[in-house]
């Protein structure tokens, strides 16, 4: 019974195995990016970027229909353009990056929906907005795995300046010029992972598998490495449980994954060891030193 409910779908159906492999790849790469987005107070920037990739994906759709390669390429180009333009405008004018991004992403979202509506139906629009991880083929899965690998490699390269820039940006500027390039590379990784998540979860929910697990990790550890590990595990558990939930209840897979992540987040807010509500209400006896 438990085997049939929790493991059976993956042994029986290839599309479920592909979906599981995809969410694990998304978790491995996206969750660490989400932790940095949260710690750099850029969570909403990630959300804005998710909207920014829409016109590129829409142009891909306009040219090739629901071809994931064309939509991915379009999404990457649009996302990079918006990330770099917003970053350059923010750094050269003093305008806050979130304000700069808000302008670009609103324009992008309007443009994207307009482009999709020129050629597609409402169902196409739903697919673009919410994705469909269960419809993923082998080639798309390879693209997702490739993007995840590239993300982890680039993150390893920029990890040190990214950490120092997050905690003490002035110090980094006095010892190195790596801060600016690291920030831009980080924005590029955000785009790559949004496009990656876009295949599975759609433009509106892609950022969820990055930010919600990061939020979960924040309530369980004060150590960066531990936070990244917890976020990856929370994302993978959300992905697996969401797929099972979707399979058993016919709830769409993307929203099911994000809903499970939301449950983990709520549990963490309540019972987390670092700043959780219950811990604050019942802190236990104070220590001697």
């Amino acid at each position: 019974m438990i085997y049939d409910a929790l493991i059976g779908p993956f042994t029986e159906f290839e599309f479920m195995r592909r979906a599981l492999a995809a969410v694990i790849a998304l978790s491995l790469a996206g969750a660490p990016i989400g932790v940095f987005l949260m710690l750099r107070r850029m969570s909403l920037v990630g959300d804005a970027m998710a909207h920014a990739i829409l016109p590129g994906a829409a142009v891909g759709f306009l040219l090739s229909g629901l071809n994931l390669f064309a939509m991915t390429a379009g999404g990457l180009i649009a996302g990079f353009a918006v990330a770099i333009l917003a970053g350059v405008v923010a750094r050269s004018t003093g305008l806050k990056e979130d304000a700069s991004l808000a302008t670009f992403y609103l324009a992008s979202l309007a443009l994207g929906v307009t482009i999709v509506s020129i050629k597609g139906t409402n169902i196409d629009l739903l697919h673009v907005l919410f994705g469909n991880i269960l419809a993923m083929d082998d080639q798309t899965l390879l693209v997702v795995a490739f993007n995840a690998t590239v993300t982890l490699l680039v993150l390893a390269v920029i990890y040190r300046p990214l950490v120092i820039e997050s905690v003490d940006p002035l110090f980094l500027r006095t010892v190195s010029r790596a801060g600016g390039p690291a920030h831009l590379a980080f924005l590029a990784l955000v785009v790559v992972n949004l496009v990656n998540g876009f295949q599975a979860l759609g433009t509106l929910l892609a950022v969820g598998l990055m930010i919600l697990p990061a939020g979960v990790a924040r309530f369980w550890s004060r150590d960066l490495t531990a936070m990244i590990c917890i976020a990856v595990i929370a994302a993978a558990v959300s992905g697996y449980a969401g797929l099972v939930l979707s399979f058993q209840t016919r709830v769409p897979s993307g929203p099911a994954i994000i809903l499970v992540a939301t449950v983990l987040y709520v549990v963490s807010v309540l019972f987390g060891g670092v700043g959780g509500l219950v811990r604050q209400m019942f802190p236990g006896r104070h220590l001697e030193a």
Binding site: L39, V157, R160, P161, V163, I164, S166, V167, D168, P169, L170, F171, V175, S176, A178, S221, R222, D223, L224, M227
Partner: peptide
């Protein structure tokens, strides 16, 4: 720098923070 410029909510230990002073030797 003035300590107000530092994001002290970032999860980094004293050891790691002081260790950033070795950037010239350790680099990327």
């Amino acid at each position: 720098p003035q300590s107000a410029e530092i994001d002290r909510s970032f999860p980094i230990s004293v050891f790691d923070f002081v260790g950033t002073g070795l950037w010239r030797d350790a680099g990327l």
